[in-house]
């Protein structure tokens, strides 16, 4: 080689580059497609309608009845002018017996959800992983329970519970909630247990762990995401549950929030207290909405995690 040739540095030097603001998508993935457009329109319409309803609910809960009917989509004004913006909430809280109902609901929903998961998790584990004979049939049998609308069993259930003296009784309500939620929860959790690799159980068996220990020390911690998802979904469902509460509870002392709201609906609409009524609805709905927003990501990863590999 002649000495005029420039020698390259021994170590490769990375040239200075400016990265793109956004990496380029795969070719073809961004093209126009009618299905995509339709989907977008649908999703945005759906979102818009829901946001509108939510806006209407929240704004109306701060309005006077006149405002609600004359300017349904305007911002609330009159209670703010009178210096008492939370008047509707105070009215609802004081007249609907929400204070007591709130405590009842929180305790009932919390205890029920926890017990549902406590019963369903071992059941799902046994059905999906212990290889018990007939476990497939049993799993399908449990799944059928999801397909039966509970409205159809309300009357026989009521008669049966009445004979046991468990109507108008929070313990009876708890039993019904747990029983009716088990099929869905078991089904949800079997998906989670199935997605765990077999080798973990085998490793535990070789390490000397009993099936009981394997379940509590290995499998349960690994399905934590699924357990939390099941807990949250049940809590939201039970919190909003109204029909069964109306059928089975008829004494103020036993009322859940949804049940109390139902009674309050009669009283408030009789007195044309529509602002107060809507504030009552907001009191019942908003806590779960907040919970859901806070935990949405967790729930969605939970739901999809169980499904795939």
């Amino acid at each position: 080689m002649s000495s005029t040739v420039e020698s390259k540095p021994a170590v490769a030097v990375r040239p200075v580059r400016t990265p793109p603001r956004k990496p380029k998508p795969a070719p073809g993935s961004r093209g126009f497609s009618p299905l995509r457009l339709l989907g977008m329109i649908f999703v945005w319409l759906f979102t818009a309608v829901n946001v509108l309803v939510l806006y209407w609910l929240v704004s109306a809960s701060f309005k006077t009845p006149i405002e609600i009917f004359s300017k349904p989509f305007a911002l609330p004004l009159q209670w703010f002018e009178r210096g008492d913006p939370f008047r509707n909430f105070a009215y609802a809280w004081n007249n609907a017996g929400f204070g007591h109902a709130f405590v009842v609901t929180v305790v009932l929903v919390a205890v029920s959800s926890v017990v549902i998961v406590l019963v369903s998790a071992p059941a799902a584990y046994a059905l999906s992983r212990l290889g018990v004979r007939g476990s497939n049939g049993l799993t399908n049998f449990v799944a059928i329970g999801m397909g039966i609308p509970f409205q159809t069993v309300v009357i026989p259930l009521f008669i049966g519970m009445g004979k046991l003296g468990l109507t108008n009784n929070l313990f009876g309500m708890f039993l019904i909630y747990v029983a009716l939620s088990i099929p869905f929860t078991v089904f949800l959790l079997t998906g989670f247990f199935k997605s765990l690799p077999d080798e973990l159980e085998e490793a535990a068996a070789i390490d000397g762990a009993s099936p009981f220990r394997t379940f509590f020390a290995i499998m349960l911690p690994l399905t934590r995401g699924g357990l939390i998802t099941a807990l949250i979904l049940n809590a939201i469902g039970l919190w909003n549950e109204t029909l069964l509460a109306i059928v089975f509870l008829n004494e103020n002392a036993n009322f859940t929030l949804a049940r109390a709201l139902f009674s309050f609906y009669g009283a408030a609409s009789y007195q044309s207290e529509y602002g107060g009524l809507i504030a009552g609805v907001a009191i019942v709905v908003l806590p779960m909405l907040v919970l859901y927003v806070l935990l949405a990501r967790r729930i969605i990863t939970g739901l999809t995690l169980g499904a795939g590999k």
Partner: peptide, 28 residues
């Protein structure tokens, strides 16, 4: 298996994902 006094190394290792390395090794 627990009464055979054997140890096994699996192809995919089958480590307990929620335990630390020390707990994995010390589980038995």
């Amino acid at each position: 298996p627990k009464d055979r006094d054997i140890a096994m190394v699996f192809q995919n290792y089958a480590l307990y994902p929620h335990m630390t390395v020390a707990d994995n090794i010390g589980f038995h």
